[in-house]
Write a protein that binds this DNA or RNA. Sequence first.
DNA 1: CTCCTATGTTGACAGTGTCAAGCAGTGGTG
DNA 2: CACCACTGCTTGACACTGTCAACATAGGAG
Lengths: 168, 168
Amino acid sequence: MQLLAEKPAGEISLREVARAADVSHNAPYHHFSDRRGLLKVLAERSMADLVAAVRVAIEGASDPASAVIEGGAAYIRYAVEHPNGFDVIYDPTVCVPGEPSETMAPLITELEELLGAASVAAGLDGQTGLIGVWGLVNGLATLCAAGHFALDDALAASADALTRMLPR
Amino acid sequence: MQLLAEKPAGEISLREVARAADVSHNAPYHHFSDRRGLLKVLAERSMADLVAAVRVAIEGASDPASAVIEGGAAYIRYAVEHPNGFDVIYDPTVCVPGEPSETMAPLITELEELLGAASVAAGLDGQTGLIGVWGLVNGLATLCAAGHFALDDALAASADALTRMLPR
DNA sequence: CTCCTATGTTGACAGTGTCAAGCAGTGGTG
DNA sequence: CACCACTGCTTGACACTGTCAACATAGGAG
């Protein structure tokens, strides 16, 4: 996680992790099956942080509509503040679509439930609303973390789009 | 591009490209500065295809609202049909935020103009509308390409969310 | 003809993922 | 107590990769 704060997951080598921990180059193999095994754990920890941030934001909101908006803002903010962590979460070479890890699956479910419940409370249809909100927020987070526009613009556009999406 | 259709960009090695072209392991260095140089070209070509698909969809639409929806659908469809190409476009380790390549920059601008013009024609504010539409569609494309939900669901949610976002 | 440029070649080096084999303690069981 | 499985770690090796340097060759410009 320390290395991930400094460089993207693709540039982290098992041997580098071993060096940082001051053990032999093969010690990591007794804790991770693979290089991908290490990345999976990084993705799971990052996802846990993301979900926690979103949960705090949603629970701290005063009404359903602002819960959706605040949850989305937390999501985007996490991506901008931890770009490497955010990237590894959705890296398709880390968690294959069909079979997510035992640790990742419940986190994804939790995120879906958080966003889904917030959407429903704000008056959207469950499935479609969840996908729409998740998609919007995830896309803004990705583009913003990649530097395509500023955080403030992303947050403004997110709030604007979500407000328009919710029934008034 | 042929290799990219089969495996993600991160698993393509320069030597493999050389082997596929039946040249020596160092020949690629006379065409690409770097491994990243190769990936940049892959990203540029993929982006050109993406933009072309979106352009065709927007130009073929009958009214402004359906232009936005059809353009978004084309974007999402491209991502699902060419997941590795789509991934490399937005790979933050390929094109650094600040300084995109001379070939990539106009493509990004073109995409922004396409989506921005369609948003404005459909009644949205230019900047905020563009970011909202791009974000929504990009997020759905990413999540859908990663297998988080089916293409049909993504297209339905996209159309639904965009319809709600546009002034009625 | 001569020379330059584009393209290609071989050879080498350090770094990496991964496998195989072995070593040192630590705990529990007979 | 002796014994044993086990966990964590080690060293050693292998093939593969990105990259650099030096050298070859061929075709067009002068």
